[in-house]
Design a protein around this nucleic acid. Structure first.
Lengths: 339, 339
DNA sequence: TTGTAAGCGTTATCAT
DNA sequence: ATGATAACGCTTACAA
């Protein structure tokens, strides 16, 4: 048996399609009797509206698109969960795409989503992304857009982030207050903005505490902020700068690489060198020693981003003016054993 | 400016909609001249077919649905990546839903996906799922379905799994060969099948090696196979059965909980007690000591599942008979420091 | 080679 | 309270 349609119901009941449609949508101008008949038959036939037809008529897909650099990282998984939860509440579905940190892919995926006519798009930019015409295309297309985590300040849309600069500033200030004086930084490369902001926060904290900034204590992680990055750079810094007493890592993964190496060669953490991470991955609470880090509220970022997007979708539908908002979520220091 | 349509192009060029449609789809019966004119204008107007209309006509959504218990676990993230990769290749999009290990949610989400008329569905069942009528509804609806990882043997569709029983058997045999004799097992609860299979593999390996099975050495993890499960059960077993010399854990997370506790109280791994995990999470390679485990090929599971699903979608389209396949992927032992 | 017309399943307007 | 009709944008027999 094929899917039931309004037409079928109408024919079987000897009434018009219009009436059937109205009855099912609880319009006031349908007699209780026919309404009941329609509803009964509909449930009997297991009728569900053909979403393709509904989409075509209403020009809505009840679907949003989400592009993330990678789904594997704990942080993004948390974000995804936040987004899915909000979508679920509103009976929206989420199409997820992974840009693999590639600008070209990101661009192509945006096109696909626009062709698919999703009702809105959520993106955390790839590390490669330095041009934003593809984002402007979304805006030009009047499709609501919210950027989160890795954003482009220049693009005129709603955004959800943390204050990376302040968080880094807090982290380094924390180390200084604890008495560490020679603080190195393992930073991310020159895109995305986050890495820069964290670096700037590091630098500012030093300056504000009258510790001269020493560029040779800053190591760049080139491998995608990997475990390896931390491990290799730790190896390097320990011969080049044995005098350091703390390292602020751009990411927990990097920090864990450092810890791993120091554990192997018997450097005591934090007695000889303290380690400070960033993100509060699950893993950071179970490594030995447990990692002090910045809690980056992934789930909440996802939630808020989705909320903003759905608000915007709603406003657009109501022909209201859309005001773009930028939400900056708070981060807190999770002090554990490594500092 | 609104979206360009075939009609617009037709009007502007003074030709029929049909011809425009054909021209854009490279039909043979359109003169090169008009074809060129159409294509030129289409690109100029930035024409893209309205997918809603195409969906309605072709009854295809070029979208598949994916339901996983959780996206946060490394294993599922890998699977998702495998699926997304295959979908990308075929220009398909993937709607991802999370059942949160709840049967009711899983059921509801299936309904949503069917209403959305996705072209196919991929599911890894929730731990709660013990009834399968909702899956049969998918089949009844003639929507291609592939189950992976946590499957229902009873349901008549394609499946992708590993052989949990054999993998566990191999793990425990490996421990026995290494000379361990008092081997405990921290098992999952009574659903899903995986936990049972791993337990059965454990038991069989003991029996085949003439080690009497001792039910009191089997601890059940109730907390969702969490880190906590390992930690707490480790605490228990060490007072109840100090004589054990190895533990086979149902999951890396559980194993890591055990390691954590033993590290804290100073039990040497593997000298006093060996630990064997399951899944080869990223984390297991960086914990100290590094965890010996079973590599469960998540990415490949995702890939294969998607392949099977797309094959089935294709067959259905061509009105070919669909043959259900069951793929069992190989697992290997990753020997590290904990055994 | 080009065009006409029907239809996919809804929704919305306007009569009756 | 009910229905006829058009429209959403596309595909596809079938004519011309």
């Amino acid at each position: 048996m094929k899917d039931a349609t309004l037409k079928q119901i109408a024919i079987q009941l000897g009434i018009s399609i219009t009436t059937v449609s109205k009855a099912l949508k609880n319009y006031s101008d349908v007699s209780p009797k026919t309404k009941k008949a329609v509803v009964d038959l509909a449930t009997e036939l297991n009728y569900t509206p053909n979403s393709f037809a509904v989409n075509l008529r209403t020009k809505e897909s009840k679907t949003i698109g989400l592009i993330v650099p990678t789904v594997i990282h704990n942080f993004f998984s948390n974000i995804i969960e936040g987004i899915l939860q909000e979508a679920e509440k509103r009976n929206y579905m989420v199409i997820i795409l992974q840009s693999n940190e590639k600008y070209e892919l990101e661009k192509k995926q945006i096109e696909l989503l626009l062709n698919k006519r999703v009702d809105g798009i959520l993106i955390s930019l790839s590390n490669e992304t330095g041009e934003f015409d593809h984002l402007k295309a979304i805006l030009a297309n009047k499709t609501p857009l919210v950027l989160f985590d890795k954003i482009a300040k220049i693009v005129n849309c709603s955004k959800v982030t943390i204050n990376d600069r302040k968080a880094a500033y807090d982290a380094v200030s924390f180390l200084i207050k604890k008495g560490y004086k020679k603080i190195a930084h393992f930073r991310g490369s020159y895109l995305p903005q986050n890495a820069i902001d964290r670096f700037l926060g590091y630098k500012k904290a030093l300056e504000d505490n009258n510790i001269p900034y020493d560029a040779s204590l800053v190591y760049v992680c080139e491998n995608n902020l990997d475990f390896e990055d931390g491990y290799e750079n730790a190896k390097k810094i320990i011969t080049e700068h044995p005098e350091i007493d703390a390292i602020f890592a751009v990411t927990d993964l990097v920090a864990i690489g450092i810890i791993k190496y120091f554990n192997e060669i018997g450097i005591a953490i934090p007695q000889q060198i303290a380690i400070f991470g960033f993100s509060n991955w699950f893993m950071s609470s179970i490594i030995t020693p447990k990692l002090t880090t910045i809690d980056q509220p992934g789930f909440e970022i996802g939630q808020k981003s989705a909320e903003l997007l759905f608000d915007e979708i709603q406003s657009k539908k109501n022909n209201e003016v859309v005001v773009f908002k930028t939400i900056e979520l708070n981060t807190i220091i999770i002090e554990r054993e490594s500092t």
